[in-house]
Design a protein around this nucleic acid. Structure first.
Lengths: 407, 407
DNA sequence: GTATTATGTTGCCCTACGCAACAAAAACAA
DNA sequence: TTGTTTTTGTTGCGTAGGGCAACATAATAC
């Protein structure tokens, strides 16, 4: 072999052959259908630029594979023969898992985007990874019995409030849970017999808002998410999620933006997470725990000048952070989730002013700040996207498992 | 038309047809050849996964198009029939332009990476955009007469120390030059009759180091560049350059990392650019102007505790900034260019320690910091990549202009 | 000098998409 | 109601690019 390894071949720079073309076209179609729920065949032709006959062929293959169903338009609009509608199948199901400090939430979502089941398994404080895996496996097992026999399982997606090495689904560090180096993916895969995909919660939320929420249609987006423990983030760059070398990318909460002394959950000081603190507001309102909705009510109804000052300080810090991300990413849209939406609605103009101050004019002139739209379903829908993603990438190659085990 | 516009179709989510396959394969091959200079046909087969016969066909098309030349191996190594070597053609030329405060540098680079000509046109301080365009056009005109008749021009690439709106090649703001909203691209295009591509200097440097320098082979990279006026940056994400919505992305020098009061060239305070200042060091060494090499010598030979302190402060600030970028991008490599390489070599351990302190362990554990490798040719080679990029994307579709105008 | 190995070349095959003609299903105009 | 127009689905055929296998070629190995 006298093949000197070519030092660099641009990522994904493989040759294309006929098979890849077919795979790509199937993938593109299924993605469009999945993202839009239902699309007409004529829309697919114009969006892809492919021929009518080709679309016909591709769609029927997707139908045979069980990923889509075709129906006639019930209310035809416009001249001409009405186009057939193509919908993502509700027979294909993915499970989503979200471990938190006091509970592990499990859900079942269809490829068509419907949430079939959702269960919040309460647990003793600070469960081990094993505790959470067992609870999740049990809930999944139960949900499987509720499914129809002809339904198919794409896999399980897990949203972790911490850093995840995506290549082998290992939780590197989840500060509030106290997990270090936990192979959550393989544990849950062993317990369920299903393929499992683990990722950071904020990254997952980012993808979900980009696909189905406030980030729809944008290809450059920055996402900030304040959950019960800390601030996470994500970014969509050229339509694709920022992942980094090992999947730790997008840790926007841990970026130093000031001189603060208080440390964040990961031990860093002066970071966005250490300056914009949900806990501080809870404490100020003398609340022990609260949902984002409850906190939002209090923030809106707040009259105390002292608390007002605190909120404004947090808005300023958030604005500083966002300004940096505007300079770095030059995004079209910033999407805020969790209690950050309360800060946004409390004084949007103040936040925008901070952003304009801290960012370069050219970069910030067209940026929009929007609240997340998916609310409580954010992580459930998002985590399910992880197993779906495998299907969307290569529909013809992906074999799914039956909902019920054969006897 | 009853086509409801599909709200989101993932960027680049077009259908593939046979023509696109051909175009893609030609593009992939030409990219590999361009990046490696010379590659054997057998390497191309193994790297692309395509068939020998297909490679043969594709390469001969590229040869017919004039982009590559085939030669026999002069020193065959290993058993078997020696593979033919494919090289990028030196007949294809791009010009590069780099306006600075006191000069505009013009160069001519071949597709094979050879710098044919290079000229630094000195100018009065603070030239207008028009001054610079005229100087560049004149130099390009002269260089064209020196070229062979059968050589072809790909176009002109311009590296601007400031923000550039890439869609229409307008310089939005170049602080040191004092340029605001200058349509440099169309001006130079009109003056030369050639296609012109304008971009930010640091983005261009980032791409150059990624393609030919310290970033070769990495698909996740962060680049920081300290030129005569300020700090610029760039990022390679999943093998692709971070651009942002309008091309302003990667302004890593203007991210707030501290509480400093001094403002940077763009009027922002507490930014990396305001804390890591080449001018401060020049002043400390009582130099008025100096090349990076001269400054580097002084930094290495420095004995004064006061200056030492200043250098260390700058290293600390740089480390803080890099730490943030490690958390954001989770890169494999950080490449430092300009006088930042002097800070790196002055005390690499200190810099690395600051990075580890400010970054999450998981993100920073495998990151490497390297000095840029292209030195003085960085921007010249990088800017030429802009016009080449068009060829590399669709070799068969791109028509080039003859070096000499027909009489 | 022969065997082995790897690569270039040639002719044929295969198939996914484009195309054109036709059929079908809606709105529109009388 | 009826014919026309418009748009879309269906069908059969053509086309071209990549895979494949057989053969030729040029190096090393023994």
């Amino acid at each position: 072999m006298n093949k000197p390894i070519t030092p660099l071949q641009r990522n994904g720079a493989r040759g294309s052959n006929r098979d890849l073309v077919r795979q790509h076209n199937l993938s593109v179609l299924l993605q469009m259908i999945h993202l839009n729920g239902t699309v007409s065949r004529s829309s697919l032709t114009s969006a892809t630029g492919l021929n009518r006959s080709t679309i016909s062929d591709l769609v029927s293959e997707l139908e045979q594979l069980g990923f889509v169903t075709e129906t006639e338009t019930e209310s035809p609009s416009g001249v001409g023969r009405p186009s057939l509608m193509v919908s993502a199948s509700s027979k294909v199901v993915a499970f989503s898992v979200h471990p938190e400090v006091d509970a592990t939430t499990v859900g079942a979502v269809t490829l068509s985007g419907k949430v079939l089941f959702s269960e919040r398994v309460l647990m003793a404080k600070h469960p081990t990874a094993s505790d959470s895996v067992q609870a999740a496996a049990k809930a999944i097992e139960h949900m499987r019995t509720q499914l129809d026999k002809d339904q198919l399982i794409a896999g399980v997606g897990v949203a972790i409030p911490g850093q995840v090495r995506v290549e082998d689904n290992v939780v590197r560090l989840a500060p509030q849970l106290g997990w270090v180096e936990q192979p959550y993916g393989s544990m849950l895969s062993q317990a369920t017999g299903l393929p499992v995909f683990v990722d950071n919660d904020a990254s997952i939320g980012c993808m979900a808002e980009s696909n189905f929420g406030a980030g729809r249609g944008y290809s450059e987006m920055v996402f900030l998410f304040a959950g019960s423990g800390g601030i996470g983030g994500g970014a969509i760059i050229n339509g694709m999620q920022l992942r980094g070398a090992s999947g730790y990318g997008g840790e926007l909460g841990h970026v130093r933006i000031g001189e603060g002394n208080t440390k964040d959950y990961s031990g860093l000081s002066g970071t966005l997470e250490s300056l914009v603190r949900r806990d501080d507001l809870l404490q100020a309102f003398k609340m022990f725990a609260a949902t984002d909705e409850e906190l939002d009510m209090d923030i809106r109804g707040n009259k105390s000048p002292k608390i007002q000052k605190m909120i404004e300080t947090q808005i300023d810090a958030l604005g500083n952070g966002i300004a940096s991300y505007v300079n770095i990413f030059n995004p079209e849209v910033i999407v805020l989730a969790g209690f950050l939406t309360s800060l946004l609605s409390y004084d949007e103009n103040r936040l925008l002013a901070r952003i304009r101050e801290g960012a370069l004019n050219a970069s910030s002139e067209r940026v929009v700040v929007r609240p997340a739209e998916l609310g409580a379903n954010l992580l459930m829908i998002g985590a399910a996207e992880l197993p779906f993603h495998r299907i969307l990438e290569s529909p013809a190659e992906t074999k799914l498992l039956p909902a019920r085990k054969k006897r």
